[in-house]
Amino acid sequence: MAKAKKLTKGQLRRIKANHDKKLHGQKSKTKQNEQIHWQDNELSAPQTGTIISRFGQHADVESSEGNIFRCNLRRSIDSLVCGDKVQWRQGKETEHSISGIIEAVHERDSMLSRPDVYDGLKPIAANISQILIVSSVLPVFNSDIIDRYLVAAEQTGITPVIVLNKVDLLTEISQEKQNEIEQQLQIYRNIGYQVLYASSKSNHGIDVVKDQLASHTSIFVGQSGVGKSTLVNALMPDLGLLTQEVSENSGLGQHTTTVARLYHFNDGGDLIDSPGIREFGLWHLTPEQVYHGFIEFSPFLGMCKFRDCKHQNDPGCALIAAEKNNEITTKRLASFQRILGSLGENKLTSRFND
C-alpha cells in the first residue's frame, strides 16, 4: 500500500476550518482572517507596494505590476493609511480572500492628519503632494472655512490649491455676491495661492483641473455640499462614486465616501478620496502655528510690542499696524482673529465639517 502523501500546512488549515465550521457554525470573515498566520516559507520574497485602501486589520495593496491584493498587517505596524508605500509579501496560497501580509511601512514624504478628541492626531492619508480645497458658489461661499483649510495645509507642507466649484450657479446669485467672491479669490491669488474654477454640470474648467492633478497625488477637502464627489465623478466618469444632492433643509450634502481609497487618473496622477476630512478642526494648534498658517503674515512675526500679544486690540500689535497700512487685508486679519478665538473652545464643538 502506497504511503499517504503528507498534507501541506494550507490543506491542514482548511481541514481544521471546515471541521470548526461543522461544529460551531460559520465564523465571521473577520475572525477567520485573524487566524491566518503564514510561516516564512509560505510567503514570497518581499516587494514594494502602495496602500490603496484600509479596512480595519486588513488593507488592499497594489503591486508594482498594478495588481491588488488584500493583506493582513503585522502587529508591529501601528499606523497605515491610503498612499503609504509598504513592504509586503504574497502568500503562496490565498486564505479567506487574504493574499499576503504587510510587514513594514516606508518613510512618508508627507502625511495629512486631523485632530481626534480621543486619539490625538489621526493620520488620514500619506505621500500627498497637493490638497485641493473645494468651495462652491452655493449653498454658500465661506472664506473662513477656506482659511482654516489653508492653515491646516500649511502645517503639513503640502501645497494647497483652491477650487471654486459650481460656477454654473453664479447667475443665480446677485452681482454683489459675485463681486464679493471674486474679490476674496483675488486676495488668495495675491498671496500666492493658485485658484481654479470648475463646474461638473457644465464641464467648465474640468480639463484645467485634470491638468493640475496629472503629476500629483491629491486629496480633495471642503464642506459638505460643495460637490466634491460630483467633481470627482466628472474627473473620473468611469469611477461612479456615489453622490447625494444638497439637503434643502440644512443646505448641506451628506457624506457618501465611507472608506478611504486611492484612484489612478488615466492621464496620470492619483487621487485619495477619504471620509476622514469630515472633522478637520484646528483646536490642537498653538496661536503661533495658526500665525504661520497665514503666510502673508510672516514678515510681521515677532514684531509686536509685547511678546504675549493676542493680535486683537493689543497696543503695538504689528498685524493691526500692517492692516492699517494695507500690507495685509482686513478680511484675512479678521479671519485669523476668529480662528485664534476658537482655539479655546471645547474640543467636541470647535471642529468644522467638510
Rank of each mutant, 00 (worst) to 15 (best):
K310Q: 15
R307F: 06
H292S: 10
P275N: 04
W283G: 03
G281V: 15
G316L: 09
H311P: 06
F297W: 07
G302P: 10
W283K: 11
K310N: 05
Q312A: 13
P275I: 02
D308M: 01
R307D: 03
F294Y: 11
N313Y: 04
P299V: 14
Y291R: 12
G276C: 00
L282A: 12
G293N: 08
L282S: 14
Y291C: 09
K305I: 04
G316I: 10
F300M: 07
R307K: 13
V290E: 07
Q289M: 09
N313V: 10
E288L: 08
G276N: 00
F306T: 06
I295W: 01
G281I: 05
M303R: 15
Q312L: 15
T286S: 15
C309A: 06
R307N: 11
K305S: 09
S274L: 12
I277C: 06
D273A: 01
S274Y: 00
F300D: 04
D308Q: 09
G293E: 06
R278Q: 06
A318T: 10
P275M: 03
L301T: 15
R307H: 04
P315W: 01
I277T: 06
Y291L: 12
S298C: 05
E288P: 05
F297H: 08
G302Q: 02
P315M: 10
M303T: 11
E279N: 09
P315I: 09
E296V: 05
H292P: 03
G281R: 07
L301D: 15
P299A: 03
Q289L: 13
W283S: 05
W283C: 06
R307I: 14
D314M: 04
G276I: 03
M303F: 05
F300E: 08
R307C: 02
D308E: 05
F306M: 11
G276T: 05
H292V: 06
H284V: 12
L285Y: 13
W283A: 07
H311I: 02
D273G: 00
D314E: 15
D273I: 12
W283H: 04
P275V: 00
M303E: 15
D273K: 00
C309T: 13
C304F: 12
G276E: 01
E288K: 12
F280K: 09
F306W: 01
W283M: 09
A318E: 11
G293C: 07
H292Q: 15
H284S: 12
V290W: 01
H311G: 11
P299Y: 08
P287F: 06
V290Y: 00
Y291M: 14
F280L: 11
L285S: 07
L301G: 01
Q312G: 03
R307G: 00
F300C: 02
L285G: 10
N313A: 10
R278F: 00
F294W: 09
K305R: 15
I277L: 15
S298D: 13
H292N: 12
Q312E: 13
G293M: 04
H284L: 13
I295S: 13
C309M: 09
F306N: 04
P275D: 00
G316Y: 09
F300K: 04
C317E: 02
T286W: 01
D314I: 04
L285A: 03
C317P: 02
